[in-house]
Write a protein that binds this DNA or RNA. Structure first.
Length: 884
RNA sequence: GGCCGAGUGGCGGAAUGGCAGACGCUCUGGACUUAAAAUCCAGUGGGGGGCAACCCCCGUGCGGGUUCGACUCCCGCCUCGGCUACCA
């Protein structure tokens, strides 16, 4: 086999590795451990994309090098295989989603194997495996069985929830209600994003610009019973624990931003004693809005603000259209307008609410609230720029110091009163505009028009007024989060069924009580369905399941199963744990194994998962930690996001742009090693970079050069190049070798693969020119190359006379002393410009070097007749003179 | 609008205070060959000078600053990309 022929050697070594289980990881690490994880793919029908092998090759290089460095390495792969496309395919063709999913998984598995990744395939899992999602359901039950103890900041078993005496006295049902309201998994009927075209509700993050992320179908809001996970309880810990993680600051910032912690105050605006108000009828609907009476209102209108120092500038209030007090605050004269506005707001999708944001909308309720700091009566408006789901759903509007309030006030002619003097923060003209109420200023400054607080700086004002509000019982310090509880149910077929049963009464109606499926009855598998079509109503497809699945009886009580399914995120929230103990039938993972392998030392994947997947998985992990299932606080110690690979035209790869590169074709044309090497050589792992097929050809040529450096490519049979010698290498050869070992070793540790490859190219360029190539240099080089181009590495290793795979050969070590050259060239700078070069012995002392440099004719010319103000030697690099 | 990242030859990139452009692609020339492919060798930021080995000037998005010295650090902008968006 004279010529470098990847088509022959790559399948050969893939078969060898499989046959010898070369990369099977031990159950427990036997020394220093490395858990390197790729974000497992969704097995789409399109097959592997060139973006996949980018991160996968990076972790594979790290793993292969680590094995040679004596580490116990676990490097698994699996499939995130629940998801909409398979179900949509099923709806179209009538073929069960599992069949399509398994077909896609086979394709992915074949493609991944063709790239020579050193996965332990014995650990492969798919989230759609019944044996896997049994434990996804089990974890859901743990979450369901947990309440969050705010004092201890810890999730605890629901059985440990203290029950107040009053609730206890009210009976068992009251206790159950009390518990159910506090579980981390709970039901709620908040408005959701209903997408008629997909026949499902979507999470906020699956809605982009009021359209579904998948398919771009219109989305409307409607109330529906849903399962929610109380991720907000963990907001603080999710934010604080980011500190200890070895993640890029940008990704941490993204998560912090998403959690969106803010501190401020809740302030209670009292509502005047007696008002004409509208009274809702008994059902709490607004049918009988026009019935009016006089009642005494004792509530206050509570608002949240991050700027309690601007309380004196509050000239009106705004409540969200969904605010609970809205009916009671709406006066008769305004009722029709308010009602119309509410209906209009309810109809609006998020898109419309934001798209029309240029124009603020709202109506006056007719009511007033009393500002606790100055007893002024301020009008209460309804506007959809205030969100019901954030803070208290109501704000005090300070138009002088908030952009949105300012726009609204201008639109409706409401007063604007400045209470913060920007001082030097703005040019004088703009400052005066602020003080006159013609411009808003959102920054910090000095208080004005604020009674006894005048003259205080913002930060101090905040501290003081919060204390005063608390003392008077009209407010308190408060913390808020942008993060919302996680809408966890989907009206789909192809997802994990909830292990939850709804109790039925004698008439077959739901009693409103639910219970968990007993642990010994897990898993709850998906039932047989005759067809998968959604019916265009929000009820899930599982409502069409056969009765024997849908209506189980336990202890004589009849139940209806929960027919929602879990979202795709569920399976990926804990797959990294299952990889460590994939066949355990007693537990999701053996605690001893978890303790030994976790946390993940390197997690690589696309930035598109920087927020949601990572946040959700971290949340589950923390619940599992609190419940004693895992020993680690955080799952992903080090995270790296690989950059996007663009098409050859510098645009995002997509079918419609026609610039998609198919990895199979690259493997066929150039080989898997060339594909791997090219993806690593393109540029830094985290950078976005365009594909260039000439570049693939270039690294393939490099592999050919490396091949010919060692192998006689004209021989009929496999034979070493006649230049290979058993002679001892000379000093130059040793220096090049050890320089290469050092650079590649350090670059791999830094994940700087492009520069590591450049150093290996330099090695090859050097030795190709040598007519004598010592085996003692070639062998370490092959070992260095092998993590990048494993098939070529193995083949060359074999050619050099080794019978066994190089996968566990010791990684070459470098010797600093061999890196030193006998004489070195130094550049000489005068006033920052290179004026000459000198050659000195490598061990020359500074005095000798400076003298040599001064004697260099061009340097001498530059410094002649001037005063030398500085002279310095940068070891091994250059000599510096500064003259005047 | 906010946050994050990035701007260096024809192209991908290297250098994170010390010889800008490593390494590769592209292109050009040469060797080998009947020829081509493959391979090998050499050159390849711009401008200017010299018969010549070589020499000089300019050059890392733009404008300032710090420094003997800045792609690198600081201040102010511009452009592109990603994420996010009324969160009070």
């Amino acid at each position: 086999m004279p010529r470098y022929n990847p088509a022959a050697i790559e399948p050969k070594w893939q078969a060898y590795w499989e046959q010898h289980a070369t990369f099977a990881a031990p159950k427990m690490p036997t020394g220093p451990k490395l858990y390197a994880l790729d974000m497992f793919p969704y097995p789409s029908g399109d097959g592997l994309h060139v973006g996949h092998p980018e991160g996968y090759t990076a972790t594979d290089i790290v793993c292969r090098a680590a094995r040679m460095q004596g580490k116990s390495v676990v490097h698994p792969m699996g499939f995130d295989s629940f998801g909409l496309p398979a179900e949509e395919h099923a709806i179209k063709t009538g073929v069960h989603p599992r069949i399509q999913t398994e077909k896609n998984i086979s394709t992915f598995r074949r493609q991944l194997k063709s790239l020579g990744f050193s996965y332990d395939w014995g650990r492969e899992i798919a989230t759609t495996d019944v044996a896997y999602f049994k434990w996804t359901q089990w974890i859901f039950l743990q979450i369901y069985d947990t309440w969050f103890d705010a004092e201890l900041q810890k999730g605890r078993p629901i059985s440990e929830l203290p029950i107040p005496d009053g609730v206890q006295a009210a009976g068992a049902d009251a206790v159950r209600d009390y518990q159910d309201e506090r579980r981390l998994a709970y039901q709620s009927s908040a408005p959701v994003n209903w997408c008629p075209a997909l026949g499902t509700v979507l999470a906020n993050e699956e809605v982009i610009d009021g359209k579904s992320e998948r398919g771009g179908h219109p989305v409307v809001r409607m109330p529906l019973r849903q399962w929610m996970l109380r991720i907000t309880a963990y907001a603080d810990r999710l934010e604080k624990d980011l500190d200890g993680l070895d993640w890029h600051d940008g990704i941490k910032a993204l998560q912090r931003n998403w959690i969106g912690r803010s501190t401020g105050a809740e302030v209670y605006f009292t509502l005047p004693g007696v008002q004409d108000v509208l009274v809702p009828d008994e059902e709490g609907t607004t049918e009988s809005l026009f019935v009016t009476t006089e009642i005494r209102i004792e509530e206050s209108l509570d608002i949240y603000t991050t700027r309690p120092d601007t309380l004196f500038g509050a000239t009106y209030m705004v409540i969200a259209p969904e605010h609970p007090l809205i009916d009671r605050l709406t006066k008769k004269e305004e009722a029709a307008k308010v009602q119309a506005y509410r209906e209009q707001a309810a109809r609006k999708s998020d898109l419309e609410r934001t798209e029309l944001s240029k124009e603020k909308t709202g109506v006056f309720t007719g009511s007033y609230a009393v500002n606790p700091v100055n007893d002024e009566h301020v009008p209460i408006w309804v506007a959809d720029y205030v969100l019901a789901s954030y803070g208290t759903g109501a704000i005090m509007a300070v138009p002088a110091h908030d952009e949105r309030d300012f726009e609204f006030a201008k639109q409706f002619g409401l007063p604007i009163e400045a209470v913060v003097d920007p001082g030097d923060a703005l040019p004088p003209a703009e400052r005066n505009e602020v003080l006159d109420g013609r411009r808003y200023f959102g920054g910090e400054g000095v208080a004005v028009n604020s009674g006894k607080y005048n003259g205080l700086r913002t930060a101090e004002f905040k501290r003081k007024i919060i204390a005063d509000l608390e003392e008077q019982g009209v407010g308190r310090e408060a913390v808020n989060y942008k993060l919302r509880d996680w809408l966890f149910s989907r009206q789909r077929f192809w997802g994990e069924p909830f292990p939850i049963l709804h109790e039925l009464d004698a008439a077959g109606e739901k009693t409103g009580r639910v219970r968990a499926v007993p642990e010994d009855q897990l898993p709850v598998d998906l039932p047989h369905l005759d067809d998968f079509k959604p019916h265009g109503r929000p009820e899930p497809p599982l409502d069409k399941a056969p009765d024997e699945w849908l209506y189980p009886t336990i202890d004589g009580v009849k139940y209806k199963r929960e027919t929602n399914t879990m979202p795709q995120w569920a399976g990926s929230c804990w797959y990294y744990l299952r990889f460590l103990d994939p066949t355990n039938t007693q537990a999701p993972i053996d605690p001893a194994i978890e303790k030994a392998w976790m946390p993940i030392d390197l997690y690589i994947g696309g930035a598109e998962h920087a927020v949601l997947h990572l946040l959700y998985a971290r949340f589950w992990h923390k619940v599992l930690y609190d419940r004693g299932v895992v020993s680690t606080v955080e799952p992903f110690q080090k995270l790296v996001n690989q950059g996007m690979i663009l098409g050859e035209n510098n645009e995002k790869m997509s079918k419609s742009r026609g610039n998609v590169i198919n990895p199979d074709e690259v493997v066929k044309e150039y080989g898997a090693d060339a594909l791997r090497l090219y993806e690593m050589f393109m540029g830094p792992l985290e950078a976005t970079k365009p594909w260039n097929m000439n570049g693939v050809n270039g690294v393939r040529d490099f592999l050919g050069r490396a091949w010919r450096m060692i192998v006689d490519d004209r021989a009929e049979e496999m034979a070493l190049s006649p230049a290979i010698t058993d002679d001892a290498p000379n000093a130059d050869e040793l220096r090049v070798l050890h320089k290469t070992i050092k650079a590649v070793t350090e670059d791999v540790a830094k994940l700087s693969f492009n520069t590591a490859i450049a150093r290996m190219m330099e090695f090859t360029n050097f030795f190709t020119k040598q007519e004598r190539r010592p085996r003692a240099c070639m062998e370490p080089f092959v070992l260095l190359l092998s993590p990048f181009a494993p098939h070529a590495g193995e083949e060359l290793w074999q050619a050099l006379g080794h019978a066994k795979s190089l996968a566990y050969e010791p990684w070459p070590k470098f010797d600093e002393s061999l890196l030193i050259e006998s004489s070195i060239e130094l550049a000489v700078q005068v006033n920052g410009k290179v004026r000459g070069k000198i050659n000195v012995a490598a061990d020359a002392d500074n005095g000798t070097i400076l003298a040599t440099a001064k004697a260099e004719p061009k340097v001498a010319e530059q410094i002649a007749g001037k005063t030398l103000t500085q002279e310095k030697v940068v070891p091994g690099r250059l000599v510096i003179f500064a003259v005047k």
